[in-house]
């Protein structure tokens, strides 16, 4: 286990200085939209919160944490806070394989495709797409979270944003529940799969959904992806612990204790595998963590986009 204090100070320092937990410049992280034809005006803003874009960087940084957990070198993490933020962020970005970045970008392209197919009046502005700060909240650094959340909500409010479409459970929870509570700013927030509005005969087959804790319990949105898949003719084969009683993938512990994260993840994967159906996730943290088991896990957006 790493010292939570060291990890919090590194992440909080990065967010304070660069608005990113990994200190990677936004122009390097957020590139998925460049080959897309997306409108810059419309009814609802597509807000990715950068979490899917972070998947390859999370994978890279946690591979180092895994390697040095409970060794003498683990205590060196405390010195990371003294490194020049942007320089270490760019270093991490350069060490992260391009292929992984492409895979993460593909998920967001699929989501844009699904929204277009559903005739949703949405727009995208990379300048308004920020990390929500949710990790600071989960780690208990309330002061840093609130400071960052006020910065993001202020940008959105000044841009006249009223409706937001989100793509991951953590950002959805932050914008829908935490921002009104801690920044005083409210938006009409919907997860993209709540807006799926087409049927298709291209579907078929079956999947086992892994409900993330935030969609399953905190936001009680588990029915929405199931309704969307039903319209597409995809059958959901349930495990016992699903919906409001879903089990955690272990991902939230990966920065503090990769070994604990792995232990929880392996139990969950074992349960998900019992159905024999392909496993489908709908959260970047769950997706990255469940894949560490070697299991083939697909993102929900890919399943829906195949039918679009």
């Amino acid at each position: 286990m790493y010292s939570p204090r060291d990890i919090i100070e590194v992440i909080a320092g990065n967010v304070r200085k660069t608005r990113s937990p990994f200190a990677i410049p936004r122009s390097m992280v957020n590139t998925w939209w460049k080959k897309e034809t997306l409108r810059s005006e419309g009814d609802a803003l597509l807000f990715t919160g950068l979490m899917y874009q972070f998947i390859p960087y999370i994978e890279k940084s946690t591979s180092y944490l895994e390697k040095y957990e409970d060794t003498k070198l683990a205590s060196l993490v405390r010195f990371a806070k003294y490194q020049p933020k942007r320089l270490s962020g760019i270093g991490l970005a350069l060490m992260t394989p391009g292929e992984k970045k492409k895979q993460a970008n593909e998920i967001l392209r699929n989501i844009a495709k699904v929204l277009t197919r559903s005739d949703v009046d949405f727009y995208y502005k990379p300048k308004l797409d920020f990390y929500s700060g949710i990790l600071l909240y989960d780690l208990g650094d309330q002061e840093s979270f609130v400071e960052h959340a006020k910065f993001v909500s202020g940008k959105l409010k000044r841009a006249g944003v009223k409706k937001i479409i989100t793509v991951d459970p953590h950002t959805t929870y932050a914008l829908k529940v935490l921002y009104p509570k801690y920044t005083g700013e409210s938006f009409e927030v919907k997860a993209y799969f709540e807006l799926v509005n087409f049927s298709s005969s291209n579907g078929g087959g079956q999947v086992t959904l892994h409900d993330p804790c935030f969609y399953g319990r905190y936001l009680e949105l588990s029915d929405a992806p199931r309704r969307a898949l039903e319209k597409l003719g995809v059958k959901c084969v349930e495990v016992r612990n699903s919906g409001t009683f879903t089990n955690c993938c272990g991902g939230p512990a990966e920065s503090i204790s990769p070994s604990l994260s792995k232990e929880v993840m392996e139990r969950r994967v074992e349960e998900l595998r019992t159905t024999g159906a392909p496993i489908v996730a709908m959260c970047p943290i769950c997706l990255g963590n469940l894949r560490k088991s070697g299991a083939e896990v697909e993102d929900l957006s890919a399943v829906i986009a195949r039918c679009a």
Binding site: P4, L139, C248, G251, A253
Partner: peptide
């Protein structure tokens, strides 16, 4: 910080 904040 072992807690996953999973809410179960």
């Amino acid at each position: 910080w072992r807690c996953l904040h999973c809410g179960l």
